[in-house]
C-alpha cells in the first residue's frame, strides 16, 4: 500500500468541501438520509448486541479475577466494570467493529456505483453526487453510531451484571449498588464525544475510498479493505488523542 498522506488528506478535504451545495431536491436527500439511518442503525444492531453483552460479561469476570483483596467491597467490581465499559469498551470496541461492518459496506457500495458508472449517470443528470451520496451517509453515521454506542454501553453493563450473578461472583444488589457509586456524568459525555468522532471517521474515510475507486471489481475489494484499515488506525489514534485531551 502506497503511503501518500498529504495527497489523500488534501483530496479528502476537497471531497468534504464538495458536499456542500444546495440539494437539488430536499425530499430526495431526506429519503436517502433515512435510508442510510436504517442501513447503519438497524443493519448493525445485531452485531453490536452480541459484542456488547460478551464484552460486559468478560469485563466482570476479569475484574473479579484481579480484585482478590478482602478489604475491597464487591460493589467495586461493578464500579470498575461500569467505568471501563463507558470510557473505553463501548465507544472504541464497538466502533472498531462498526468500521468493519459499516465501513466496508459504504466503501463497496460507492465503489460499485463508481465502476458501473452509476455515479457518472447521477452526475450527468446534474446532481452533486458528493452531496447526494456521501453527505447523507456521514450524517447518518454521526447520528446512528452514538446511538449504537449508547445501546452498547447499557447492554455491556447488563451483560456484566448477568455474568457476575450467573457465576456467583457478585449478587444483583451489590452490583446495582456499585453502579451508583461515584458516577460521573462527564464520562458519558466523553464517550459520546468519542463516538461522534469515530462515527465521522468511519463514514467519511470509507466514503472517500469507495468514491474514488477506479479500475475493476478487484479494486472495490481493495478499497474496502483499505477503508477499514485506515478507519481503524484513525479511530485508535483519535482514541488516544481524545483521552489525552479530555480526561
Amino acid at each position: 500500500m502506497e503511503f501518500k498522506f498529504f495527497y489523500h488528506f488534501g483530496n479528502f478535504l476537497l471531497m468534504l468541501k464538495g458536499m456542500f451545495s444546495r440539494p437539488e431536491n430536499m425530499k430526495m436527500y431526506w429519503k436517502q438520509f433515512m435510508q442510510q439511518c436504517v442501513d447503519i442503525g438497524v443493519g448493525s444492531f445485531g452485531i453490536v448486541f452480541i459484542i456488547s453483552l460478551f464484552m460486559g460479561g468478560v469485563t466482570t469476570l476479569q475484574t473479579a479475577y484481579q480484585l482478590v483483596s478482602p478489604i475491597i467491597p464487591k460493589s467495586t467490581i461493578a464500579q470498575v466494570v461500569r467505568d471501563t465499559i463507558i470510557l473505553e469498551f463501548a465507544p472504541t470496541l464497538t466502533c472498531i467493529v462498526l468500521a468493519g461492518v459499516v465501513g466496508s459496506k459504504i466503501a463497496s457500495e460507492l465503489g460499485n456505483m463508481r465502476i458501473s458508472e452509476q455515479i457518472d449517470a447521477l452526475e450527468i443528470m446534474g446532481i452533486n453526487t458528493k452531496g447526494y451520496l456521501i453527505a447523507p451517509k456521514i450524517m447518518a453515521a454521526v447520528l446512528m453510531i452514538p446511538v449504537l454506542v449508547a445501546i452498547a454501553g447499557f447492554l455491556g453493563v447488563w451483560g456484566g451484571k448477568e455474568a457476575g450473578v450467573l457465576s456467583g461472583i457478585i449478587s444483583s444488589e451489590q452490583f446495582m449498588q456499585g453502579l451508583r457509586q461515584e458516577f460521573k456524568a462527564y464520562n458519558v459525555f466523553f464517550a459520546m464525544a468519542k463516538s461522534y468522532t469515530f462515527g465521522f471517521i468511519i463514514a467519511s474515510v470509507s466514503a472517500y475510498y469507495g468514491y474514488n475507486v477506479n479500475g475493476g471489481a478487484l479494486e472495490i475489494g481493495k478499497a474496502s479493505t483499505t477503508a477499514v484499515v485506515v478507519s481503524c488506525v484513525l479511530i485508535l489514534f483519535m482514541d488516544y488523542a481524545l483521552t489525552a485531551i479530555l480526561l
Partner: peptide, 23 residues
C-alpha cells in the same frame, strides 16, 4: 463552473455503454 454546468446537464439525457442502471 460546476453550478453552470449543472444547469446544462439538467437538459442532457445520456445512455451509458454499460447502461449504468441504479441496481
Amino acid at each position: 463552473d460546476e453550478k453552470e454546468k449543472k444547469v446544462i446537464r439538467q437538459e442532457i439525457g445520456m445512455l451509458f455503454q454499460g447502461s449504468a442502471l441504479f441496481d
